[in-house]
């Protein structure tokens, strides 16, 4: 059963939620749309294509403390970090929600990542359907859809009179106010983003590991890492100690497989020293290793990397190219 929320009701509901949750929602900051904690419902901007960064930072933050080291009288004690409050992320696009689900696979696999797991358990996702497909979108080819409710607790779909509210989880159901009315109408037809045939990409890649294609592609790549930082499924991180005036913390931060220090071991040896090898790793991990391990391609088709890449490395082109290359060499 679907509900309908008028725009006013939606705002009122959001304000209500603010009492119990940290509400994280799209906010306009200069030219960007960023997920930020809000203090009033009116700060939210629901008229956006997609956020500049995916919501993954609210599960795997750019920087977080894993534990701190306390020293007293020669005794050392380790104090693990805790997750403080329940959170609600409002306005998540279905593709990004799927991104979280994909990150779950490695991070919740035993032994699970405790902080991630804890945040996940204490976060509600309120999704927002896409009314139109953007030129960079290709979610339907990557197992999602503009109106996919599978990975959110509640999905909102904007229509003229307000929002259709689909509830998919118990967690979601418990949050609903009484002000929402029943909606018996049909759901609007979702837009159709560009299709990217993908069926042959995995077998193709197995034969192309040593192909010059990667080197040529890497010519253009700057290894700027933007793709990884804006990607809803990239979860690589770095762990280091941070000490300041006797306070010691073990900290983890986002990192990208595109940085040359990512795999360089102490002493200087780097198994992925060349540009080509690192760029290749990104696509092999997304399109081959991850599916081999977890059955899904590690891409949700949000198109952020395409949009943000300063030199237009377009994953859709690469998927096409690889299949064509293999077809050619096979023939």
């Amino acid at each position: 059963m679907n509900l309908l929320a008028s725009k006013d009701n939606l705002i009122r509901w959001l304000d209500l939620l603010l009492h119990e949750h940290v509400v994280i929602a799209p906010v306009r900051v200069q030219g960007l749309t960023l997920f930020q904690p809000i203090s009033k419902a009116e700060e939210v901007d629901l008229d956006f294509d997609n956020t500049t960064l995916p919501p993954k930072g609210w599960f795997l933050p750019p920087t977080e403390t894993l534990f701190s080291v306390q020293r007293n009288d020669g005794q050392t004690k380790l104090v693990p970090a805790m997750v403080e409050r329940d959170a609600l992320i409002f306005g998540v696009r279905p593709c990004d929600a799927r991104g979280i689900a994909l990150m779950d696979k490695p991070l919740l696999q035993e032994p699970s990542d405790a902080l991630y797991r804890e945040r996940h358990a204490r976060t509600v996702l309120v999704g927002l359907s896409c009314r139109q497909a953007r030129p960079e979108c290709f979610c339907t080819s990557m197992g999602s859809a503009p109106n996919d409710a599978s990975y959110v607790d509640i999905l909102l779909t904007e229509i003229e009179v307000g929002y259709i509210v689909q509830v998919t989880s118990k967690k979601g159901k418990m949050l609903l106010p009484e002000s929402f009315t029943e909606y018996e109408g049909v759901l609007p037809t979702p837009p159709e983003p560009r299709a990217v045939p993908i069926k042959d990409v995995m077998p193709a890649m197995k034969g192309l590991f040593d192909d010059t294609y990667w080197e040529r592609l890497a010519d253009r790549c700057l290894h700027c890492s933007i793709c990884a930082y804006v990607c809803p499924t990239c979860y690589c991180f770095d762990v280091r100690d941070y000490s300041d005036r006797g306070n010691i913390e073990r900290v983890r931060s986002w990192e990208s497989c595109q940085s040359s220090g990512f795999t360089r071991i102490a002493g200087g040896y780097n198994p992925r020293a060349t540009k080509g090898s690192r760029l290749k790793q990104r696509f092999y991990h997304k399109l081959l290793y991850f599916p081999e391990q977890f059955q899904d391609i590690a891409c949700v088709g949000c198109g952020r990397c395409i949009k943000a890449c300063p030199v237009n490395i377009d994953i859709r082109e690469i998927i096409d190219d690889l299949q064509q290359l293999e077809a050619k060499s096979g023939a």
């Binding site: 696999q109 032994p111 983890r252 990192e255 497989c257 198994p271 391990q293």
Partner: peptide, 17 residues
């Protein structure tokens, strides 16, 4: 390989699958 987590999560020691 360079390792940070030992848990198969930080992804830097990934070689093939």
């Amino acid at each position: 390989a360079k390792m940070k987590c030992g848990l198969g999560k930080c992804a830097r020691c990934n070689v093939g699958d």
